[in-house]
């Protein structure tokens, strides 16, 4: 499942996509993210039949991604995003 967390507002699209078929719930993204965007849960609230842990975007962060991710997204010389780099299975992507 492609889980798109985030929003679109007047200023643009801000979505973090987690491919739950690739995510193994290892929690590397949780460890590297300076803004505590991710959490790993045992039961996927969007897919009750799934067995095994999965990463999701924390509820209180979902409406603020544009702001919360800013430190990782400087306007110049943008380095690779820590969460995307840390995810060995390539489950995480950003829309902006």
């Amino acid at each position: 499942m492609l889980a798109n967390y985030g929003y679109k507002d007047g200023s643009g699209d801000y979505f973090i996509t987690i491919n739950t078929d690739l995510c193994n719930g290892c929690g590397e993204c949780v460890a590297v993210c300076p803004a505590n965007i991710f959490i790993v849960v045992d039961e996927d609230p969007n897919d009750p039949m799934r067995d095994g842990p999965v990463a999701i975007v924390a509820e209180e962060k979902k409406k603020k991604l544009k702001y919360e991710c800013n430190p990782c997204k400087p306007t110049q010389n943008r380095p690779p995003l820590p969460c995307v780099e840390a995810c060995k299975t390539g489950a995480i992507s950003h829309s902006w």
Partner: peptide, 10 residues
């Protein structure tokens, strides 16, 4: 907090 996050970006 919104403005500050914008400042942090630069």
């Amino acid at each position: 907090s919104r403005i500050v996050s914008m400042i942090r970006r630069i």
